[in-house]
Design a protein around this nucleic acid. Structure first.
Lengths: 159, 159
DNA sequence: GTTGCGGGTGAACAATCTGACCAGTCATGC
DNA sequence: GCATGACTGGTCAGATTGTTCACCCGCAAC
């Protein structure tokens, strides 16, 4: 299940230069094309690589404002709230968590003013008791996976 | 800057079936290949599509535990803390926010026990005053972009 | 009116890549 | 010793890519 060093190099290479194909990857990694092909197949059926979907920037779509909302849910209303939030396009992801809140969701909006509309829509639902929102100002570390992949590959060598 | 309906359909198509090429996409969308190619080029130089990096599942890498940590930072230590957190592979993203905390980061770990190690490493830095962690139990809405793309495409028609 | 421009179409081209094979080699574990 | 799995280096036909044509259309400006 864990990845080895070659898997790690392959993933990192693909993450850095997604446009290269199997053939070019095999050249860069110094292995046979069939090997890369087999590794990729395995990584994908493993679920390590879920896919190669386009990485879309919400800001470029006209949604430059990101926020995180912590929600407190009325007992037993969890499923309803989840279903409700899933219908809001501006809700990019939703987690249920331990801790003071019950759920944490990532929101985007067209502006700070528009964020109010989004929050109203999110919170305007019976099962939600309270919401606390944190607006994102900067994003010093954008969502990344490479360092983790490298560490996982290292660990497999040692372990 | 905004996307039109064809752009929207193209992005959604690519998100749903990333393996298809330009040619197949043009067939599905009922437009000429050159059109798809031109749209893709534009979307990428626009920054709407950042790339097609592999979508790696941390759980499949051996990091099934996800958590969000809210950090409180000592005045003037922001830059140092950012640099510190960037060196921790388990920190998948970092935001500076308004609200009670100063920063919000997403963490992964090999287990709940391992999460303690990660948090210690994150918090074990001079500039961090306090950290409050919420462990993710469920992820009812995984990170998604399609609904937002569809809405953006719709808006462009009306607007 | 017509000119220019941006965008889409359909077609062509060589170059490249893909998916699928194969036989052979090597290290591992039983 | 021998089966197994993984990698290599090679071939094959078929499909796709990047690129460049000429042409058409709607639209705005002159």
């Amino acid at each position: 299940m864990a990845i080895d060093h070659l898997d790690g190099r392959l993933i990192v290479l693909l993450a850095r230069e997604p446009r290269i194909g199997v053939l070019e990857a095999s050249r860069r990694l110094g292995v046979a094309r069939g090997t890369v092909q087999a590794r990729l197949d395995r990584l994908q059926s493993n679920g390590v690589i879920r896919g190669f979907g386009p990485d879309v920037d919400p800001a470029a779509l006209g949604y430059p404002v990101t926020a995180f909302a912590t929600l407190e849910i009325k007992q037993g209303q969890g499923a309803d709230v989840r279903a409700h939030l899933a219908t809001v396009p501006e809700v990019l992801e939703l987690h249920t968590t331990t801790g003071h809140g019950d759920m944490l969701c990532r929101l985007v909006a067209r502006s700070n003013a528009d964020l109010q509309r989004v929050i109203d829509r999110v919170v305007g639902f019976d099962g939600i008791v309270r919401a606390s929102t944190a607006i994102v100002m900067e994003n010093p570390v954008p969502l990344r996976i490479i360092p983790l992949v490298e560490q996982a590959a290292e660990d497999s060598v040692r372990g």
